[in-house]
Write a protein that binds this DNA or RNA. Sequence first.
DNA 1: TCGACGCTTAACAATTCCATAATATTCCGT
DNA 2: ACGGAATATTATGGAATTGTTAAGCGTCGA
Lengths: 228, 228
Amino acid sequence: MEVFPGKILIVDDEPDIVEFISYNLKSKGYLIAAARDGVEAIRKARDFRPDLILLDIMMPNKDGIETIRELRAMHEFDDTAIIFLTAINDEKIEIEGLKIGADDFISKPIKPELLATRIGSALRRFRKDEEHEQKQTFGDLEINKTKFTVSYKGTEILLAKKEFELLSLLASKPGRVFLRNEILQRVWGTDVIVGDRTIDVHIRKIRQKVGIDLITTVKGVGYKFEMS
Amino acid sequence: MEVFPGKILIVDDEPDIVEFISYNLKSKGYLIAAARDGVEAIRKARDFRPDLILLDIMMPNKDGIETIRELRAMHEFDDTAIIFLTAINDEKIEIEGLKIGADDFISKPIKPELLATRIGSALRRFRKDEEHEQKQTFGDLEINKTKFTVSYKGTEILLAKKEFELLSLLASKPGRVFLRNEILQRVWGTDVIVGDRTIDVHIRKIRQKVGIDLITTVKGVGYKFEMS
DNA sequence: TCGACGCTTAACAATTCCATAATATTCCGT
DNA sequence: ACGGAATATTATGGAATTGTTAAGCGTCGA
């Protein structure tokens, strides 16, 4: 499924960097706009309405901190992710940036893969608000988080709440092993204390209801979701 | 659903401090585990696999310095950030700590906002690309630490925990010979005492399961990982 | 109120893992 | 080639972990 990944505004005063980032992101299908300083950034942002802004901190004519402060002040960018580009590893700036609404930091020199994954996760974080039907499919299996159902080869299977949450968690990262206490904390919460067999019993029920073996036990470690 | 920020292990012998930190971090969505001393810390770290460890320096039953030394010796915590908690503003300790692998220091009394930002930046620095899995490939062989699997020419092989850890260790530095007692310490820990044949048996099982001969015996010295 | 259902626990079964012992084999220096 | 030492192999029992089943309890809706 080829989805349009998003629009990104790059703000940096060094043309080389803009060019570098721009090239990388275009190849991944993003739409790109660029600005040279804070003033231009705000103008282009209103016009281009990016999903995400990559903002250099050190800039002439209005620096990154000041720019983000203004952007956040207008609430038309409430749904826009902002990532800071920092040359230095300056904690003060990072703290400052976080306080006023940066969503992440990437320090130069920029590694393309890192850039891509950070942008990906920032966008994903922000896109949650837009209500698409949240569903995942794995072969014949479909997990629908808005309808709270699981279907296998078209037939819907009814899972109880805990069972569904457990399966959702495991399926959120197929193949990845979730430790038992990680599962406990994430499905049951940090305060609740339940016995160890409780997880097993739920796993059992899921396996039973779904029929095929989706969940693999990794003894001494945890469980993972995997299509055979 | 919220973004999952990470897992943190708190190590301190004062229950009040553990409680205080724990409460603060839980409210930010972190998963928390706690340990009272160095020995317990190492045990829990292996089992909880935290992204970050908050380590008190003054502790009974193995102090912070000694603990971090051991943690860093086992390669399985190479990707784990470690922050020291110091009551005193002792430069000697800080220098000592940095030398052996601490990533930051926080001095008591602890201020919640400071704690949160420091933890945030330490995690960001260390953040593995959760998107891409932690894996190593050697020709046709792939070791995947998030999935806990080893695959050879595409077929997945299931190793038991100890076997997997042993293979991971050897594969972490291909070609390098690991001494037997080095292996013992890193895979089994310093406290556990097992006979010499135990290593051999596990090596045997790995060779058997994987099929090809990945592990070379260096008689009188140890073992090394090597693709033929 | 009754019954159905979801969740947790307890009790027991089944499985897997792991360390050791016992024996065989290989390696290496002489 | 020989002897001794180190490692390989195999089998085994116990420990640790997980699977399974049934029962108890609370909640919700008919």
